[in-house]
Nucleic acid binder design. Structure first.
Lengths: 122, 122
DNA sequence: CCGTATCCGATCCGATACTG
DNA sequence: CAGTATCGGATCGGATACGG
């Protein structure tokens, strides 16, 4: 991922990283600890393999996520949050909370329930 | 702004709103209270009139920002954060904090200083 | 001072196919 | 199982001009 050369504000920078379609969700999924690629792929409804890989790469590049690879067959990796990842998770939880509030107020929760998506903020 | 009809997760929804290039910065600029359009335009370095207006409109649409218009000439408006806006501000402050850390660690602060941008997290 | 409309290049992201 | 490459439509956002 290519950043601009100059940022006039730290938020511009964080936003550049977080704006990708799936990043907040990936970080949120990692809240409970390490997770293999295929687990992530299974749990994040709708994401393509390409996007998951690409976004994980960028999250690693900026120190929000790290991974551990195990050599052997079949290949196995574990992705997990770094300290910086945990920190932004606390911001993401607030945003999730706001999302839940909004969806409840506007009767948008049927989709959540129907698909059995977990949206606890633990 | 047109949202999707169904969201499987509240974060997907919040992200749809927050992903726009200037939204986090606009919210951050409003942290100290009400502000006219031209003040915002002056203080947010690099934003075009079109984008500022568009993003403010969307932020209002989803209840993060509200405005008060005064009839008369010249026209005068005041934009300010709603309660929901204040709540997401607390998440944005965390992200700003992360951005500052990152920029310090990676010697990226020269741009901030040079342009005299305020980036306090108060 | 505040807001709208349009045009157009840049970027994003989904589908798909292929490798170790 | 994990990762890479490419193609093409959709969306984003900057420039610019105009209107209340």
């Amino acid at each position: 991922m290519k950043l601009r050369e100059n940022y006039t504000c730290p938020l511009e920078f964080v936003h550049d990283i977080i704006k990708g379609k799936w990043k907040t969700i990936i970080i949120f999924q990692l809240r409970k600890g390490k997770c293999s690629f295929s687990e992530l792929h299974r749990e994040i409804s709708g994401i393509s393999q390409k996007m998951l890989l690409e976004q994980l790469k960028e999250l690693r590049e900026f120190g929000f996520v790290d991974k551990k690879s195990y050599s052997g067959y079949p290949l196995q990796v574990e992705y997990f949050l770094t300290e910086r990842g945990e920190k932004i998770l606390s911001a993401i939880k607030i945003m999730q909370d706001i999302g839940i509030e909004y969806m409840i107020e506007n009767n948008m929760t049927q989709f959540l329930d129907k698909k059995g998506i977990k949206y606890d903020i633990s």
